[in-house]
Amino acid sequence: MTDIQTTTVSEEGYASTSEVGDFELSIDATGEQGPDPNSVLVADYASCFLPAFRVGGSQRGFDDLGKLQIDAEADLDDDDDLTGIRFDIYVEADLGDEVDEVVSRAEDICHVHAALREGLHAEISVEDNAF
Rank of each mutant, 00 (worst) to 15 (best):
D94Y: 09
D63S: 15
A43S: 09
N129P: 01
E127I: 07
L68E: 05
A46G: 00
S58C: 07
P51G: 03
F62D: 15
G84P: 10
I70P: 05
K67Q: 04
F87W: 00
L82C: 10
A93G: 12
D71Y: 03
E19P: 00
G66P: 07
Q5K: 15
D71E: 15
L95Q: 13
T8C: 07
S26K: 14
T6K: 05
E12M: 15
I4F: 03
Y45P: 02
L65D: 13
Y45K: 00
M1D: 05
I27S: 07
A74D: 01
H111K: 09
E107V: 11
D94Q: 11
Q5S: 10
S16P: 01
Q69A: 12
S47H: 08
D81I: 05
G119N: 14
F49E: 08
N129Q: 14
A122W: 01
H121W: 11
A130G: 08
S47A: 15
D100R: 04
D94A: 15
V102S: 08
G56P: 02
L68I: 05
S104H: 00
F53L: 06
D81T: 12
V102M: 15
S58I: 09
F23Q: 06
A130K: 04
V103L: 00
G57A: 11
E127V: 06
D81V: 07
D64E: 06
T2K: 13
I124C: 02
R54M: 13
D63P: 05
D22G: 01
Q59T: 02
H111L: 14
D44N: 12
F23M: 06
E98I: 03
